[in-house]
Computed example of a mutant assay.
Amino acid sequence: MTGDRPAGGAPSVDWSTVLDHLEGEVIAAEQTMADGRAEEIAAWGRRTDDWVPPSSLGPVPDDLRERAMRLLQHQLAVAEALIERITQSQRQRDVAARMSYGPSRPVASFIDRAL
């Protein structure tokens, strides 16, 4: 999340850029679910890094607070949907694992013999 670098070499990051990046990630997660790409959906669920805001930014400016709150609600909704999809996928895998793909059981045969 580093923006353009000014002449001094320090990254130029502001809250608007940070929110843009976070929105992009939420949209990417939604697109992954919409496309039904199971492995990518599972990868979203395996993410373990918590997001930590850049320490140099300070609090969210007043003019961006509403946007940040909407983004948080959107993130929570997408996270809930991801959890649901991952849970469904695990259930489907469990059912598939219990299914037998071996040879079928013998079927009773009746032979009519005239006496």
Rank of each mutant, 00 (worst) to 15 (best):
A108N: 06
I111W: 08
I86M: 11
R46G: 00
R5E: 13
R37N: 07
E40I: 00
L22F: 02
T2G: 09
A96P: 00
I86N: 10
T32E: 02
D50K: 08
G102D: 12
R98Y: 04
Q92F: 02
L76D: 15
D63W: 05
R46K: 13
G58E: 09
R47W: 05
G3M: 04
M33F: 06
V52I: 12
D62Q: 15
G3V: 05
W44P: 02
R70W: 04
P61A: 00
Q75D: 12
R46F: 05
A77I: 04
S109D: 12
P61H: 00
P6W: 10
G45N: 07
W15C: 06
S89D: 14
T2M: 11
P53E: 02
R93K: 09
R5L: 09
D63P: 00
R67K: 15
S100L: 03
A77E: 13
A34E: 09
T87G: 00
M99A: 13
R65I: 02
Q92C: 00
A42I: 10
P106F: 01
A108W: 05
W51A: 04
R91T: 09
V52R: 07
Y101W: 10
A114R: 15
G102K: 08
E30H: 05
I83F: 13
T48D: 12
S16Q: 13
S104Y: 04
E23I: 00
L19F: 03
P6D: 15
A81L: 05
A79K: 12
A29D: 08
A97G: 09
P59I: 00
G3W: 01
V26A: 14
A114I: 07
S109T: 15
L64P: 07
L22Y: 04
L64F: 01
M69D: 11
M33G: 02
W44G: 01
S55F: 05
P53H: 02
G45S: 06
S16T: 04
Y101C: 07
E84G: 10
E39S: 08
A7R: 12
D94M: 12
R70T: 09
P59S: 14
A28Q: 11
V13A: 03
D14E: 10
A77V: 04
A38I: 08
W15L: 03
D49A: 12
Q75E: 15
Q90A: 15
